[in-house]
């Protein structure tokens, strides 16, 4: 059974994917499509561009995007409403505390304090905002391509 296009919905939940466009972010919308032969649902992805002038969305974030009354450009049809789940920086919705996987950051810090913190250990309070390693050691914000031609240039986005 064919799904109606995702762009017709007023609001969507999408995951941010790498995008080189200035002032816009790219989102992957995941929806389930029913296969009537097997009577099973299968995931189907659609790509949507949303207006994001300050680039608040980073790759992997789950974001609520809203339909624009009028298209900004041929591609940009939505705008970013709210970053719901920033990747790797989650907050427990019940207690409003920061979590790491299944543990509270507070609990981890308490345990470290009990044993005696190491000087070189990682501290959340001193850690800068996400993105300081972009283009240096972290290349998850760009599309990585396979190197097909050796022109003497050393492009870090090619493997």
């Amino acid at each position: 059974m064919l799904l109606p296009p995702a762009t017709k919905a007023q609001m969507l939940l999408g995951q941010c994917i790498p995008c080189i466009k200035q002032g816009a972010s790219k989102f992957k919308i995941r929806r389930l499509e029913l296969d009537t032969n097997l009577n099973m649902f299968f995931p189907k992805h659609e790509v949507v561009y949303a207006h994001d002038p300050e680039k608040i969305c980073k790759t992997g974030d789950m974001v609520i995007i809203e339909c624009l009354p009028q298209k900004l450009t041929r591609l940009i049809t939505h705008k970013v409403k709210e970053v719901l789940y920033p990747l790797g920086d989650l907050t427990d919705p019940v207690t409003n505390k920061k979590i790491v996987s299944s543990k509270f950051r507070e609990d981890i810090d308490d345990i470290n304090r009990l044993y005696g913190e190491n000087e070189g250990a990682f501290r959340y309070a001193k850690a800068p905002r996400r993105g300081w390693q972009e283009n240096k050691k972290d290349f998850t914000h760009v599309d990585i391509r396979t190197k097909y031609h050796d022109d003497g240039r050393n492009d870090p986005t090619e493997v």
Partner: peptide
């Protein structure tokens, strides 16, 4: 799980992280 620690670890251990080609 923990993006801030991930970035700090890349810096401390001097590693480069690249995902698979898109």
């Amino acid at each position: 799980w923990d993006y801030k620690k991930f970035e700090w670890l890349l810096e401390t251990l001097d590693l480069v992280y690249k995902p698979l080609p898109t």
